[in-house]
């Protein structure tokens, strides 16, 4: 067992001091990327290429194989229908109708969520209520509330708003409430130190500190609401002569105008992308990303 192991000793070397440190030549450290590499590094460019590829496949298939437009209209035909219906037809008003209902529902949902969270922040019972109500209502798809809404409020905007409130409320309330709970003790103490209490404390400390969670809640709420609205409009979109975007899709399908169905679906996607990637992303860039709370 006792084999003597020779231990390594540090080698003693002469000392030196560098008296004149000159500027380092870093010219060769950073090498310029080629033009093509630079272009390919842009996120949007790569995504645009994928999009063009998909559109090309669609157009090539429908035109090349001479597919019956009644079953599967070409991309260009669908796009033409969309533009035509938007500017010559009444699609633009249908879109506006849907967005109006969405704003009512989303706004009402946010307002109720704010009241609920205030209650949840000020009392333990309120917090328990939010946790329990969310657990109960979250698995319940908002669209499943539609038959009940129709019984209570009839066929009209109020039924749609009711369903939308249900879609937005729980996501926003839960995320905001848990965001508030995660605000650090230090920040809370700072707020109290400068004399903030009650609602000013919530508005000036808790809301900005929990903004990443609140934004998450708002995005989830928006996603639920938009999908729910289009779904609900498919069931009944027309009230007092005007209908929404979902109704337009349903109508086109009833009239066997497949290109109209596609035009409607385009519009749903376009609005969805605009709100998610432009509106919410821009709010995030101006707030939480700028403050270093989220990348």
């Amino acid at each position: 067992m006792s084999t003597t192991k020779t231990l390594a000793e540090p080698v003693i070397r002469p000392e030196f001091v560098n008296e004149n440190i000159t500027d380092a030549h870093t010219g060769d450290v950073a090498v310029q990327l080629s033009f093509i590499e630079k272009i390919w590094n842009i996120n949007g460019v790569r995504k645009a290429v994928i999009l063009l590829g998909l559109v090309g496949l669609w157009q090539g298939y429908t035109v090349g194989f001479d597919v019956e437009p009644l079953m599967f209209p070409s991309f260009v035909f669908s796009l033409k229908t969309l533009i035509n219906d938007l500017f010559q037809g009444d699609l633009i008003w249908k879109v506006w109708f849907s967005i109006k209902v969405l704003i009512y529902g989303y706004g009402a949902g946010m307002a109720i969520a704010a009241v609920l969270v205030l209650w949840g922040t000020s009392s333990r019972l309120g917090g328990d209520f939010i946790a329990m109500a969310t657990a109960m209502f979250n698995p319940l798809p908002s669209i499943a509330m539609l038959p009940l809404a129709m019984l209570w409020f009839g066929l009209g905007t109020s039924s749609l708003v009711f369903v939308l409130v249900h879609a937005v409320l729980w996501a926003v309330a839960l995320n905001t409430h848990s965001g508030f709970k995660n605000v650090s003790t230090t920040l809370r103490m700072i707020g109290e130190n400068y004399g903030l209490k009650g609602v000013p404390f919530v508005v000036k400390i808790l809301v900005p500190a929990a903004l990443p969670s609140i934004m998450t809640g708002m995005k989830v709420g928006w996603a639920f609401a938009w999908r729910t609205l289009i779904g609900a409009e498919l069931v009944f979109g027309a009230s007092s002569g005007s209908g929404g975007l979902g109704w337009y899709i349903f109508e086109s399908s009833q009239n066997i105008e497949t290109e109209g169905v596609f035009a409607g679906l385009f519009m749903v996607i376009l609005i969805g992308i605009t709100i998610e990637n432009l509106l919410f992303r821009n709010i995030e860039l101006r707030t939480v990303a700028r403050w270093g709370m989220q990348r």
Partner: peptide
């Protein structure tokens, strides 16, 4: 109770409000 006549300086770096600039942090107080 806590009050502005006794101001705390903490050990934690997150005692600054991240949504306010250096100047705004002071003017906020």
């Amino acid at each position: 109770e806590p009050g502005p006549d006794r101001v705390m300086v903490f050990q934690e770096f997150d005692q600054l409000l991240p949504w306010k600039t250096v100047k705004q942090n002071i003017t906020f107080a």
